[in-house]
Structure formats: C-alpha cells, structure tokens
Simulated scan of single mutants.
Amino acid sequence: MEKFGESPTSETKKALAAALIHGFPSLKDESDSSSGFGYWFTPGRNRRPATGFLEERLRNVRKRMRKPARSQSTQQTPPQSSEAGTRRTFIPECTISEERAIQCKEWLKHNSQPLNQVEQYMQDTAVYRAKSLRENGWDIQGIRQEFPHLFTPGMIAQDFQILHGEAAPKLFETWLPLFKDKILHLARREGKLISSLDGLTPDCLGELALSQLPTLLPPTVYRVGRKVFRYTIEESKLAFIDHKPVGTNLVEYLHEAKVSRPYPYVLSLGNDIWHTSQAFVILDGEALEQNTLLQAVDVCFKVFYIFDIDYTKQCEAVWKFLQNAVYEIKGGEESKPATSLRAAILACK
C-alpha cells in the first residue's frame, strides 16, 4: 500500500497475484486454467466486485486504516441505530485466523463438493462470516454473492447454533408444550378463532397457533420522517406466513416475490391453514424447503440474525414476540401488544 496506495488498479493486483504464484508455484489455483491465480485475485465483472485472497486482504486493511476516522465522526454525531443494531448480540472470537477464514471463504465460493468439507468450512467460518456481515451491511443479494452456501439446507441453522447456542432449539422445545394451547385459547377468547379444533393433531394445532400470532400482535404505528405508517393485520399475516393452496405455480410465485417482497418470510402450501403440505422460507426469490411449518418459522427467524437484517415492518411485532418470549434473546424494544400477550400467556393456566 505504501507503493500503490489504498486502492491499487486491477492490473496491479493481477501482477501481484501472478508474481506470487510464479515465486511459489505450490500456491497456484489448479482450477483456474487461464491465469492460475483465481483464488488470489479475480477482477470484478458485470457490476460484481473483485474477489480473491489479495482483494479480501486489501479490504480488511482499508477497514482498519479508516476505523479511527469513523470513531471520531461517531463521537461527534450519535449513530442512528437500525432495529437490527439494537438487538445485536455478542459475537465470539474466531477460532481460526483471518487468513485461513478468507481461504475457506474463497474455496466455498467455487466449490459445492465434497459436502462434508463444505459443512466443515461453513462451521469454521461462522464467526468470521457474522463479523463480515455486521461490518459490511450487505443486502440479501450481496450476502448470496459473498457466502452462497448460506442458502444450502441446514447452514443458517448451523450458524445460529454456533452463535446463539442456548436459543437455537427454543422454538422446537417450547412451542407445542408451552405456547400452542395458550395462544389458541387467547385467540378464541378474543374472537379471532371461531373454527372447531376437534380432531386436529398437536402438530396441526401448533401450526394453527403460529398463524394466529399476527391477529394477536397487530402492527404498530411507526414513522419515516414526518409520515406515519400502519400496516393492516392482513398485510402482517402475508409478511409472516403466506398460505397458498396446493398446486400453486411456484415459478410464477417466486418470480413475483423476488420483485415485490424483498424480505424473508414463510410460504405454506396446503388445502387449509390447519394442514401444511409443504413449507418454505422465501429468501430473495428462492424457496428454501423445510420439513414442517414450525421449522420454516424457525429458520426464517434465524435468517434475520444470521443475515443481520431488520425484522419486516409488517410483522415486526410477531418476530419480536418470538425473540423475547420464545427464543429468550434480549435486545430491542418490545411492542405493547407483545408485552400484553406475554402477560396473558403467563396468566393462562
């Protein structure tokens, strides 16, 4: 950097990468038949940023160099924290070096086999990934580009388990035995649930209880500048769990969702809201299939933490209730309806 500055040209970085593998042939990228230094530096194309170990190293050095200036500016002007910022939790220390984490990250960008190695590298880089996401603030498309295997089944849950171990199994452990019946009782008491529940299995009742949360936790008023907004309960339902009949054309549905619904949510396919045939987490227009609706809600909740993004405004009260009451993760301001619902649940016998 002393010679070429903070942001050397692409040609300079190519020359550095070429010189590196020329001096150390064992570091050559055998999968790159054109230059041999793909792992070390690959120029950006089609609006995509450059990648490689050298590029990552330069980015990290630039961040360290600019931190003092950032801290001075934040002392002068208090930061306007996002909702995600107010509920952020402690990230543990990484168990591998930054250089090793970058190597694993680059390997994961270009490989999907063997699966056991993918899983191991994802596990090893979970803390590094969490810190990178928090520092860079990428949107979902940017995250997909940087960490494509987060979209691989099981990886979101694995990252959450590493970062928030005690909270990870809470929904599965508590929803059916502790929350299901009380939620349904309160929904019926308030006239939100009028259908007969006779003959429904515990799993079906658990799914029905989840679908009742938006009716018990109506969206609160919020401001953007001078404008005041308040979503309807129906909008909250759709942003939490969108229920569609079996046979829905998923290709068309996902195409529309990618354009109009940029936030994570759950899609349930079934002939009625009591029986879910298929459940998905919809993320950036992609359907991540889950075994049950409960698992889909669990993974969707964890997406907000792993991707370090704000809860969806339409159903923010629902996610905050799950965060505080079910997962028992502290942080962020709970809405008054959520506080009231928690009190009502505690009062139920």
Rank of each mutant, 00 (worst) to 15 (best):
E190S: 11
G191W: 13
D203Q: 12
H185F: 04
K170L: 06
L178F: 08
D203E: 13
A209M: 02
D198Y: 02
P177S: 00
I194M: 13
L200W: 06
L176W: 05
K180V: 09
K180W: 00
S211C: 14
R188P: 07
Q212R: 11
R189C: 08
P202R: 02
L184Y: 03
P219I: 01
E207F: 10
L186M: 06
A187Q: 02
E207N: 12
L213Y: 04
L210Q: 10
L205F: 05
F172H: 13
D198H: 13
T215E: 13
Y222N: 04
V221N: 10
P219Y: 01
L208P: 05
L176H: 13
K192F: 03
Q212F: 12
F172C: 05
T201H: 08
K170P: 00
D198K: 05
K182Q: 00
D203Y: 09
L193I: 12
A209H: 01
D203V: 14
R189N: 10
D203W: 09
D181C: 00
G191R: 13
L208G: 07
P214S: 15
W175Y: 01
P218S: 11
T174Y: 02
F172R: 11
A187P: 12
L176K: 15
C204P: 10
P218I: 04
P219A: 07
T220G: 14
D181V: 02
C204H: 14
P218W: 10
D198A: 13
L193C: 12
I194K: 06
L171V: 01
E190W: 08
S195W: 11
C204K: 15
L200I: 08
R188N: 11
K182V: 09
K170N: 10
I194D: 14
T201D: 08
G206Y: 04
D181F: 05
G191N: 08
E173M: 15
L193Y: 15
K182P: 00
L178Y: 07
E173A: 15
T215C: 13
Y222V: 08
P202M: 07
L210R: 10
S211Y: 06
T220I: 07
V221M: 08
A187R: 06
D181E: 08
E173F: 08
Y222H: 14
G199L: 05
E207A: 06
E190H: 13
T215Q: 13
L176I: 14
K192N: 02
L171H: 07
T215A: 14
K170I: 01
P214C: 08
V221H: 14
Q212Y: 14
R188G: 14
S211P: 02
W175E: 02
L200F: 03
L186F: 03
C204S: 14
A187C: 02
S196P: 12
P177R: 00
L176Y: 03
P219M: 05
S211G: 11
I194E: 10
H185V: 06
H185R: 09
L210G: 08
P219D: 00
L217I: 09
T174M: 08
Q212K: 10
S195K: 10
G206Q: 09
L193D: 10
S196G: 11
L217Q: 11
Y222A: 05
W175D: 03
L197R: 09
K182Y: 00
P214V: 08
Y222K: 08
H185I: 12
E190R: 15
L171E: 01
L217H: 04
K192P: 00
L184E: 07
I183V: 11
L184C: 06
I194P: 01
L200Q: 11
